[in-house]
Design a protein around this nucleic acid. Structure first.
Lengths: 194, 194
DNA sequence: TTTACATACGAACGTTTGTTCGTTTTTTTA
DNA sequence: TAAAAAAACGAACAAACGTTCGTATGTAAA
């Protein structure tokens, strides 16, 4: 029992260190030896806890993909007003980013290095997420609560500035609430018909 | 004469191919042999035209950094109204992205792989660019033409959705003008006081 | 205390990396 | 056409890569 806990946390530590290094130097430029050293092990010892370098990337990417997939699903079930839904999406991105800054960065920037089967799955999940947000935007335009903008351009402009939260969000300096309030104003008061 | 032209275009072709590959696979995951093959040469032959792999990255990054530095300088000299200045910044980012899609991507995503002296220079230029845009935003808030938002959050939200134009801008599908019109509405009508 | 098991290790593996070298081929200049 | 310069090449390099293996060490179960 105590054993399995210890083991579980070590694996978590390794994944966290991996995310941190992948974020800092990029996946391809991070060596397994380097990663091992950062958790106080030799490279060969790592393989008692992980299966491969890429498997770590997979876990990081899929873990975050699931957070967004689950998040949007919950939003769609809980809210029906497009404005509210967009507000909740802003909150979702802030929460996920704040929850695990480095792993979100990896999720965003390093998915290219997933090998074909996993990359396909990943991109399918992302596409599905984007199309759900796109539907919200289209919905908002049709129902007249959003301005008459190009839905696709709006989608990417909207998601993009949320996807980059992890780049400048330093948890100590700005509260999640302040961040949310501002992003809501910046993003939505431009979309909302007055 | 004809010689120097030919030579110059080959070097340009190589840099373009490099930008394309760096964009597609990332700098670290792109091999010199692969790059050579993509321009129909052997790896060793490449070194008659380039000095090193990293030097190509430097040229790509610095080239684009200069475009933005020059662009913002010109905007500040030509326009005085913060709204107009922000509009021109949107135009600048669209123009640079449309001008060389892949090299802008590299400029955005692969600068990490610059070695210390160049990375420092690069980051200094970026910082300087950002602080100029920040001043415009602060200016706009103080003079009352922009909403009372957090300047830093606004800065990053604004620049971020512009920095990612290259991710979804496919020159054939949407015109620069349509893109500009929409981004101006999305971004500025949320900032402009009505 | 002995037996089993998970973990850590150093050494080694086959590959791939960026780059250099000496030579041959192509192009330009005189 | 001969001489000079530029460009392309195959072979080779030392280093670094991800991963495997046999063995030693420490820990938990009997």
């Amino acid at each position: 029992m105590a054993n399995s806990v210890k083991k579980a946390t070590l694996k978590k530590d390794i994944l966290e260190a991996a995310a941190e290094l992948f974020k800092e130097k990029g996946y391809a430029a991070t060596s397994v030896r380097e990663l091992a050293q950062s958790v106080g092990l030799e490279a060969s010892s790592l393989y008692n806890h992980i299966q491969s370098k890429e498997q770590m990337l997979q876990e990081i990417c899929m873990g975050n993909a699931n957070k967004f997939t689950d998040g949007i699903e919950h939003i769609l079930k809980t809210y029906s007003n497009p404005i509210e839904q967009l507000e909740q999406i802003i909150k979702l991105h802030i929460d996920v980013a704040a929850d695990s800054l480095s792993s979100v960065t990896v999720f965003n920037d390093e998915w290219k290095h997933l090998s074909p089967p996993y990359q396909e799955t990943f991109l399918k999940m992302r596409k599905s997420y984007e199309s759900k947000v796109l539907d919200i935007i289209k919905n908002g335009i049709e129902s007249g609560v959003l301005r008459q903008v190009d839905p696709k351009i709006t989608l990417y402009s909207f998601l993009t500035s949320l996807r980059w939260i992890h780049y400048w969000f330093k948890p100590g300096r700005i509260s999640k609430e302040r961040l949310y309030d501002n992003l809501r104003i910046i993003q939505l008061d431009g979309l909302k018909k007055e």
